[in-house]
Write a protein that binds this DNA or RNA. Sequence first.
DNA 1: CGAGTGACTTAGAAATGTTAGC
DNA 2: GCTAACATTTCTAAGTCACTCG
Length: 756
Amino acid sequence: MSGGHSHNDSQIDSGSRHNDSHKHKDKYKDKEHKHKDHKKDKEREKSKYSNSEHRDSSDKKHRDKDKERLKLKDGSSDKQKDKHKEKKKEERSFDGKPKKEKENGFESPFIKSEPENDDFYHSPKHEKSLKRERDDDDAEFKPKKIKTEESEKKAKKRKQEDEDIKPKKKTKDKKGEAATDGKKKGKKEPEEKWKWWEEERYTDGVKWKFLEHKGPVFAPPYEPIPSNVKFYYDGKHMKLSPGAEEVATFFAKMLDHEYTTKDIFRKNFFKDWRKEMTSEEKSKISDLNKCDFSEMSEYFKAQSEARKAMTKEEKQKIKEENERMLQEYGFCVMDNHKERIANFRIEPPGLFRGRGDHPKMGMLKRRIRPEDIIINCSKDSKHPKPPPGTKWKEVRHDNKVTWLVSWTENIQGSIKYIMLNPSSRIKGEKDWQKYETARRLKKCVDRIRAQYREDWKSKEMRIRQRAVALYFIDKLALRAGNEKEEGETADTVGCCSLRVEHLTLHQEMDGQEYVVEFDFLGKDSIRYYNKVPVEKRVFKNLQLFMEDKEPEDDLFDRLNTSILNKHLQELMDGLTAKVFRTYNASITLQQQLNELTTSEDNVPAKILSYNRANRAVAILCNHQRAPPKTFEKSMLNLQTKIDAKKEQLADAKRELKSAKADAKVRRDEKSKKAVESKKKAVQRIEEQLMKLEVQATDREENKQIALGTSKLNYLDPRISVAWCKKFGVPIEKIYNKTQREKFAWAIDMAEKDYEF
DNA sequence: CGAGTGACTTAGAAATGTTAGC
DNA sequence: GCTAACATTTCTAAGTCACTCG
């Protein structure tokens, strides 16, 4: 990031943030009805405010949309094409490989056009076809094949691998590696690991040429509860039909959860439950409050206790069974490589748990059957078999998508997928590409910032709004903020969907001018609360945007994510709102690491620095967590340990002193040695104490902040890898096993001088 | 355009596994 | 060995964004 645009410190000062979403939600509760007609509001606003002039123009209320539309047309767009081309060549990855940012846009299915590839998997002779092109310039739909000695070798290597398709050293790893973690072991990758990042990529929207898998694992069938576990209605025992009973158990299992006390949850549950009842049950059971699930609840608690109390052997058996399932269903073959599947189990039926004030919480999530399932695989693969006596909904062979299995979920009607693990080629490439796009933004961010600052002065309202929104997205790392269907989901917003009620303007606050106070619920109903000093021009614009609006009106009434992203696309190929989050997160990490790391520090201190840098990012991105339930207690425990250690240190020092005195008097070898060993002891204890104190600081600072999300999704792993190499910190201290698998590409390729 | 949808990434909570300290 | 604390994994909801269709 260059001058003039640094993230304000208050961002990094957690003091101004709260994770107090409860209160907050209440605050908005009564307003819910108000913005029901959101879309209409927007329309109304538009015609009301469609002026592109300043607020003092007297006739602003009557400027109309059509005028604006005209402007829109003659105004900006379509240099797009040239820019597009211009930029395409611009970026090559640091390893010298040509790079592509866009994968889609080519229609014809690849497989058909290259019949020689059809038997690709079965006859690994066709090594050529393995190569994938990384450069998409002018990509005719047939990718070029660059043949080099290097890739020839690789192809051979691949061939070997195929012969013995084994998951990459799975089980042994678990114990072996986990146990030695943090000790020696180090970055040594097992020999057979496939380095997909050294190969060419598909460039024409084709995601794979061969895909074979075993299909999903279905949820286990419902097991009726024993007949001595009773359900009571209005105090009287009632034997439920299996269907009704199953749904009842879903509720019983959640009885201890706050959800079941919420009105909407209960209402939705009861409505859906009744649908599963026999007509007889339906006529009897008319009030949820008269239902007594407590025996069921107790039964399940007992069950889980029993599970905990199982013997080692029993547990081992279960573990083995899980492992067997994993081996059978947890992997697929994609283009000659065995790859791990992320979620091969179908989501079991249950009660929908939305986040925040979700209008659909408590609804029944129905059981998924084979008839609901679409299978995606290669034509020439061994198709997965549906369970006996059932059929798949469909089997298709679409190699333009990455999923293996899909079904439509009944709560929102959206599609769910089974896809590959983050360590897979297909996910890894995409991830890598994401960071490359962010790095390209780094190169032109100054230009873009200059532009939006200029646009704050535009005479067109829509441009000003766009520019202010972009400023927020850049400075505060806000999400884009798509509009959502009213009443279908919790009321949450992002940048473009902010409403007037989410901002408070303060001409002056705490000695700072032009402060904007944000208070809204974002993704997952996590509260975003922040007070930000902004530039005068932004402030004035906000006043203008808010003028004559109701609290529930849209702040940016002439803007949405589609308009914004179209604009961004013109500024840089592949640029969208979320790229700013990635860019700002990664650049912040890099800066913070530079600032905070001291080469003389020991490893724990360096790790603290790393965590602090990571934390700065998490704060920027507003990644919060509920403070762990045991937080206070564990903090107290730690303090006790520290005190004890201090005590111990004092003792050791006393002993050292007396040993010294002793040595002075006796002047013999033995007492000298004693002094030495006491000295060592003191040192050791001091080190231990420091370690504990560092730990305490780290934990305290982390109370409500979740580091995982940014580490996994926003921080270019090569920054962390380079940092580890540069400062001699073992990579295992930063990334656990799963993370190392996901970031294998970065660990392999980043050197200590890597710069984001 | 604008609504709807499909595919994919990002997200925090809950479940489960591991470890350290008694 | 037991258990509480902590770390990791799993789960699936909730976003983003491109595309299609009328």
